Amino acid sequence: MTAPFTCRVITDVSELAALAPDWWELWRQSPTATPFQSPAWLLSWWNNLSDGDACVLAVHFDRRLVGLAPFCCERRSRGRFARLMGFPVTDYHDFLIAPKLEEPILALLSSRLEDVDFWDVMELAELPPDAHALRLAIPRGCNVTSARASACPVLDLPSTPDELPGILPPRKRRALRTAHNRAERRGSLQVRAADRSSAFDMFESLVALHRHRWSSRGEPGVLADSHVQQFHRDALPGLAAANLLRLYLLQIDDHPAAAYYGFMHRNQAYGYLTGFDPAYAFESPSVVLLGYVIAESICEGAHKFHFLRGREPYKYGWGARDCLNTYRVFHRIGVNSHDITRQA
């Protein structure tokens, strides 16, 4: 079954970068791909946040890239540990596989993973319900354990923005009206959408607002790390070029009040990060902006809005329901996986 296919291990990062055009083509073909599997996201992650060696399984058929399993591997005191690139900033992990070739490619990946020597323990974390990696067969000589991972609340969207109030909980409808009224009393409202020329400036506004929000609570926030900030900056051009990036800034009387950073792909919207100025807390600018973004997502054809990882109460306030990721850990028989994974 797997004879027509070839699978090689890429360890040279420059070779991986050179694969980007074929990688993009495979990503575009894959019906389950998210922005988190794109070259823009993962190559930027590699350049800024990786802490190991590249061990990428690339599957070709007749010189065409049809499968990609991008692992990052580390040698630890008790063994070799591998996990998919993107940790911990990626909400949905998976392999990339060309449509209608899932079965033979998954079989080949399982067979190849049996033979390679870059892992004793392999972690497949944050796999969404439609992930290819959920169906990866256990390589011979290995065991697997599975568990629930993060909850990622998802809001099912109506066909038109006019129908949006009808699916929102009554309390959220009232809160949205109140936030709009308060914000309009505070000043003139304007929502700006970033394009390629303004994306960097708008991202800096997001960073500042996010910092203000979390420092007011005495906490650092997820953008406190300069390497994480640079990872996102480096990803912006590729995300924008692929029309994945959605950056919005809400201004009240020309002052930045709230910012939104997310993605749109096919009929799925992904809300990754927000920030707001605590000086406008009474006006709830994040509520105003998120309502605007969700409506815009519907106009673009989104069927679902992904709030991504975490069970923050505000997500359920919009009517979102949990979608559970899965965590799979493979380990070679005879290897103490606990000793290796706890070093992560």
Rank of each mutant, 00 (worst) to 15 (best):
W24E: 13
W24D: 11
E25Y: 00
L26Y: 07
W27H: 09
R28K: 12
R28I: 00
R28W: 02
R28Y: 03
Q29T: 11
Q29H: 03
S30A: 04
S30V: 15
P31Y: 06
P31K: 02
P31H: 13
P31D: 05
A33R: 05
A33K: 04
T34P: 14
F36L: 05
F36G: 03
Q37N: 15
Q37G: 07
S38G: 10
S38Y: 05
P39F: 02
P39V: 03
P39C: 07
P39T: 05
A40T: 00
A40W: 04
W41M: 12
W41N: 09
L42D: 08
L42C: 14
L42M: 11
L43Q: 04
W45G: 02
N48P: 12
L49W: 02
L49K: 12
L49Y: 04
S50I: 01
S50G: 11
D51V: 12
D53H: 11
A54Q: 04
C55F: 10
C55G: 04
V56K: 10
V56W: 08
A58T: 00
A58Q: 01
V59R: 06
V59Y: 14
V59M: 07
V59A: 07
V59F: 06
H60A: 06
D62W: 00
D62Q: 08
R63D: 15
R64G: 12
R64Y: 10
G67T: 03
L68H: 13
L68W: 13
L68Q: 09
L68S: 04
A69S: 12
A69Y: 09
